[in-house]
Amino acid sequence: MAEMVGLEALVASIAAGQSIAIPVDRAGVSMAATAAMIDAGLTGLHLVCVPISGLQADLLIGAGVASVVETSAVSLGEAGGAPRFVAAVRDGSIKLRDATCPAIHAGLLAGQKGVPFMPIAGIIGSDLLQVRPDWKVIDSPVGEPGKVVVVPAITPDVALFHAPEADRFGNVRIGRYRELATMAYAAKRTLVTVERIVDRDLMATEDSAAGVLPALYVDAIAVAENGAWPLPLWDEYETDGAELSRYAAMARTDEGFRAYLSAFLSRSKQVA
């Protein structure tokens, strides 16, 4: 059941070398926990981007926290390419596990169901099959004869995201972002930051419960106001486009990135 903790305690439960599932920008990224992870000096993490990432992955790569990156893309969206990701690919400092979006969803679904793999349409003919030897092409054992791709289950050590609210019982409102539930089902532990804790029971009515991840799947919750900034949080705030552009410009060089990171970390500490 979900434990209410501080931000530092939340990230202190992540160990070096673990795999950690993180959502796409619009689905609630915990930038507050990202800052705390960098501050805590975590290393060797295996990022599982569900199914892509942006600023969060770029910061974790640039700060040396992530050493394996499993993703269908890393991009800052309208602010352009992800500079630290690109630099790390070029100097070989991260191990890449290139994917395609629905394959990551399929792998998590296998994790959710406790089966070793999930078949998935398409992909055949793509060089992704060359660089992902863990993806297999098999003859379909049932139905019409034909080739089909299977991807192994993804069972992250940790799922981490940010949401608008949780109740006192640890139920978390995730709205339509069902991938957050999939991440939590598949992961061994789920850590959530929220804007606020509400007094009402989110499971009380059919209406409110429909968009909720039950406390059953949530291990720890920390309050972090504005915790997705500069990324957006649905129904709460938009992307801070100016901040993303500023990051994109500064992170082009290693020195610029260091300067950005140190300001980002001290700002996060003041807020926390």
Partner: peptide, 16 residues
Amino acid sequence: YPRMDVRWPGSFGSAY
């Protein structure tokens, strides 16, 4: 691959 001269974001959902 993997240490490419120019790296773009990635394949997104295209392969599927």
